[in-house]
Design a protein around this nucleic acid. Structure first.
Length: 800
DNA sequence: AGATTGCGTCTTTTT
DNA sequence: GACGCAATCT
């Protein structure tokens, strides 16, 4: 491809950016302004100008963004290999080469957030600090933010201001020391170590600066101090740094991102060329105007003018619903309607929400209508217990010092090595400052461990040596060997037999496939180490499949960088968007506004915002209030749809005869209103108004309730009991919704079991009898009919 | 040792 | 609703 055709169809501003070769470049790119296109074309142009592949590196925040760029570049400049990837991957690979300089070995492991929390907990114990007024999570958070700001343990100790920081400062050095012993790093360390290396080794910095002569950073508004330091250090002798971003899309302030990095870029590099991409090629003018209207309300902001030549489209919809179930149903219905009438396809739709927990009712509604969906960043595949277990085995093989991994597998499957024994092992390891596997090998030295424990540990070490002896074979073979020899396979089969539900074995098989896929892609340089690195740095957002025929559901954070023809944003309500934890601080409040801005600007043709009158959260039905952001939209130009209230059971007279009305739609059968959700009645933010009325009106029901929940030792109903009664009524309402002949996805507790979510899949309701706590529904499933009883707070499967 | 159960706590966003 | 923890049972 020649230089001329690289510019075809580009605006003046775009082609200027593409043609920029030497010197710092700042591209302020509004949403949908063709930023990725500009970046990839610029890389192609650099190559065309004779810049060697290896002198260029493009840093992104997600693997998906990197893959997308890679793909597009391949079309522009086939066969050229430019390094593209996330900040974390970039640092991980550099660190492999220079591990020794920070006291690590090159086979170091990367801890994910969960693993790192485990390590922090251990460090808290060892440091001997009290967590009475804080939690390991908070401490971990504090350490993480310290790392993001490039603060060493020493600095943190010297400037302890608030009590939480002071505690974190005590734990931080202990934690760091343990990570070194375990030959491991956490996510933040990847950046921190590299930033420190670059600062402390001028020679190495110089070399790398020369090596990565042309550096590009995407989403620059989301860089934190560590990332900033790295980028700057690599652009001193060769300041061919090009950054793209949009201050209005900065949504990671909570993670240490600093918008000033982009706002002050011109100060850092006075000779910068600044280009603004303000023309939007994505959305209709109506959508763009609504988003622009909103973002104008941010005070701390660089003024920007967004415009588009696109044709006018439908009005933005602002829709109100009675509750979240209706909201979910309404969206599902709209999707079905748009597909039937407007020729839309499943992949056109996306649903965004503020928090992950909001996806639940959506799932129910879509599944019950057989609308295919994918949840981006839901319960992650790699976070499932069985997958994490296997990864831990592999980690321990690759890095025998990995204590977190050892802690995870030493008694999984059960090998008779109990908590007490592990504790003794850990203490010994801490004393000797050695990894725990080492301690296992020296188990004879540990006086506290009984003979039986010693034998068990020796057996475990033998097993380890066996599975670790297969080093340097394809990862898939290694994995299969582990599954067989560790006894984990048998263990899994036992579990799968025990609980009929989803098969863990299937997940494991999928993981084995992933391993074989890795082997196939890396026939030469494939190694366990590489596989583990890839697995550690993969994010759930990356699993998003845009070719698939499915509706996409994701958080507002996950939607950045994506676009969809039709977008729904749900729960635009106060305390959710803006989130209650971000309401008080103005900077955070503005970030919430940007979050909504990002969501709105993903839409190409059609956009709906919705909010509810009440929303079920944590088992309780809570009143919801419209988001203040809604008043900042051009409402007169939008289509507002009010809810048409369904006959809600507790909104009206309690009419017993109509309880099992056959026409009543089935909403959701679930275990709403759990017994543990009590004691919230004292809280002003809870309103049991409607339910409370029912409680007062039907004392006999309340009597039933207290019978079920408490063995008659409480004389008069407390506020808490009333609240429990209210949520109980909620459950009864659910039973009332069971209409004969309807089909419903059913999730239930198995009687007497702690197993949550025993899913029975789709079933048809054959018969409903009784009511209240005695209500029994007979439901036919593929494997036959089962009776379900709605007991207090739980849907129970009766004995077979 | 291991399984089970009840209880208390926390629940935003993620590389 | 999810999870960790501690008390209790098998």
């Amino acid at each position: 491809m020649d230089a001329g055709s690289l510019l075809r169809g580009m605006t003046e501003a775009q082609s200027q950016a593409v043609q920029h070769v030497e010197g710092p470049l700042l591209v302020l790119a509004g949403p949908g302004s063709g930023k990725t296109r500009v970046v990839t074309h610029r890389i192609a142009n650099l190559l065309h100008q004779g810049v060697p592949d290896w002198q260029i590196a493009a840093l992104t925040f997600t693997n998906k963004a990197a893959d997308e760029m890679q793909l597009r570049l391949e079309r522009l400049a086939p066969g050229r290999e430019v390094w593209m990837g996330t900040f974390h991957r970039f640092c991980a690979q550099l660190l492999r080469r220079h591990a020794a300089m920070v006291g690590l070995k090159e086979n170091y492991s990367i801890l994910d957030a969960k693993d790192s929390l485990v390590a922090v907990k251990r460090a808290v114990q060892l440091a001997g600090v009290s967590t009475s007024h804080t939690s390991p999570e908070r401490i971990a958070n504090e350490i993480s933010s310290a790392k993001n700001q490039l603060l060493t343990p020493e600095i943190l100790l010297s400037q302890n201001l608030n009590p939480l920081r002071a505690v974190a400062a005590q734990v931080y050095p202990v934690y760091q020391r343990q990570l070194l012993i375990a030959n491991a790093v956490d996510f933040d360390d990847l950046l921190l170590h590299i930033a420190n290396l670059l600062r402390q080794n001028p020679e190495m910095r110089q070399q790398l600066d020369a090596r990565f002569r042309f550096l590009m950073v995407d989403e620059y508004q989301d860089t934190n101090l560590a990332q900033y330091a790295i980028v700057r250090a690599l652009s001193i002798d060769h300041p061919n740094l090009s950054v793209t971003g949009d201050p209005d899309q900065s949504i990671y302030g909570w993670r240490g991102a600093d918008v000033n990095n982009i706002l002050d870029f011109e100060k850092d590099y006075p000779s910068v060329t600044c280009i603004r991409l303000e023309q939007n090629f994505r959305s209709t003018p109506t959508i763009l105007a609504a988003a622009d209207h909103l973002i104008q309300h941010n005070r701390r902001r660089k003024a920007k003018r967004l415009f588009t030549d696109n044709l006018d489209g439908e009005m933005v919809v602002l829709r109100h619903f009675v509750n979240n179930y209706q909201e979910a149903d309404g969206i599902a219905e709209e999707i079905i309607r748009a597909m039937a009438e407007d020729g839309a396809s499943l992949g056109d739709f996306a649903i965004f929400c503020r928090t992950n927990s909001l996806t639940r009712s959506l799932e129910h509604s879509l599944r019950s209508r057989s609308v295919a969906y994918q949840i981006v960043s839901g319960v992650a595949f790699y976070q499932r217990a069985e997958i994490k277990d296997l990864i831990a085995y592999l980690n321990l093989i690759n890095n025998p010092d990995h204590d977190v991994a050892l802690g995870r597998v030493i008694n999984t499957p059960p090998r008779g090595i109990g908590a007490k024994t592990v504790e003794h092992l850990q203490r010994y390891a801490d004393q000797q400052a050695i990894p725990m596997l080492e301690a296992c090998r020296e188990v004879d030295q540990i006086v506290d461990i009984k003979k039986r424990g010693k034998t068990m540990i020796k057996k475990f070490v033998d097993m380890y040596d066996l599975i670790a002896s297969k080093f340097a074979v394809p990862v898939m073979d290694q994995l299969k060997f582990v599954i067989e020899k560790s006894g984990y396979g048998k263990h899994l089969d036992a579990i799968d037999k025990e609980s009929e539900g989803q098969s863990r074995r299937e997940n494991v098989d999928e993981f084995v496939n992933a391993a074989s896929e890795y082997d196939r892609k890396n026939p030469e340089d494939g190694s366990l180490e590489g596989f583990l690195e890839q697995v550690a740095l993969i994010s759930d957002t990356d699993a998003f499949d845009d070719s698939g025929q499915a509706v996409s559901i994701m958080t507002l954070h996950a939607c950045k960088g994506l676009e969809f023809p039709r977008v729904f944003i749900i729960a635009v309500e106060d305390h959710l968007l803006p989130h209650e934890r971000s309401r008080d601080d103005e900077a955070q409040f503005e970030e919430e506004r940007r979050l909504l801005f990002v969501g709105m600007t993903r839409a190409e043709q059609w956009l709906q915002l919705s909010y509810c009158k009440s929303r079920a959260m944590r088992g309780d039905l809570r009143p919801a209030i419209a988001s203040p952001f809604l008043n900042e939209l051009p409402l007169q130009d939008m289509r507002q749809i009010e809810s048409t209230p369904r006959q809600d059971w507790f909104d009206n007279e309690f009419d017993q005869s109509s309880q099992f009305d056959d026409d009543m739609p089935v909403f959701q059968v679930s275990d709403r209103g759990s017994a543990s959700s009590a004691d919230s009645s004292g809280d002003d933010s809870f309103d049991f108004g409607a339910n409370q009325a029912a409680v007062d009106e039907f004392p006999e029901i309340q009597q039933d309730t207290s019978d079920v929940q408490k063995p008659a030792d409480e004389p008069s109903p407390s506020e808490a009991a009333k609240a429990k009664a209210a949520s109980f009524l909620n459950s009864v309402k659910t039973a009332a919704d069971l209409a004969t002949g309807a089909s419903a996805p059913l999730t239930a507790y198995r009687k007497g079991s702690r197993v949550m979510h025993e899913s029975y899949g789709e079933g048809t309701i054959v018969k409903v009898s009784g009511r209240g706590p005695k209500c029994v529904a007979k439901i036919a499933f593929a494997d036959g009919e089962h009776d379900f009883r709605l007991a207090f707070a739980k849907l129970q499967l009766l004995d077979d």
